[in-house]
């Protein structure tokens, strides 16, 4: 196992960490954070595996993809946070409706 795979595994871990948090947490801000963590996991997989070129320069295409992805994730986060704020203003709580009965 080399560095690339190690980081890729960390990426997988982050992805599932985020997924776990996304499932168990009701608060929307945490859900948004969880999605971001998941996104980071995926980006990590992408970039880490791009380093399998050996000693040469890593594959640039995934890097470009991740930069794109980061901007997308940021855009989505911005929208999500705004929505969350507005929703909280409207309902008084930062949770999805069907989760209100959730013990969390």
């Amino acid at each position: 196992m080399n560095t690339a795979f190690f980081y890729a595994l960390v990426g997988v871990g982050l992805f599932f960490l985020g997924l776990y948090a996304l499932i168990v947490h009701a608060h929307l801000l945490r859900k948004i954070l969880a999605l971001n963590v998941m996104g980071c996991g995926v980006f990590l997989v992408l970039v880490a595996l791009a380093r399998r070129t050996g000693e040469a320069q890593p594959d640039a295409v995934p890097h470009a993809m991740v930069i794109t992805g980061i901007v997308v994730a940021f855009s989505a986060t911005a929208l999500a946070l705004t929505l969350m704020v507005k929703l909280t203003a409207a309902t008084g709580r930062a949770e999805l409706q069907s989760d209100e009965r959730d013990p969390h």
């Binding site: 795979f5 791009a50 399998r52 070129t53 050996g54 040469a56 594959d59 295409v61 995934p62």
Partner: peptide, 15 residues
């Protein structure tokens, strides 16, 4: 992920 080949060029040489 681990099952991927240890070394791969991806598109780097094309780039």
């Amino acid at each position: 992920v681990l099952s991927l080949p240890e070394h791969a060029q991806g598109l780097q040489h094309l780039v």
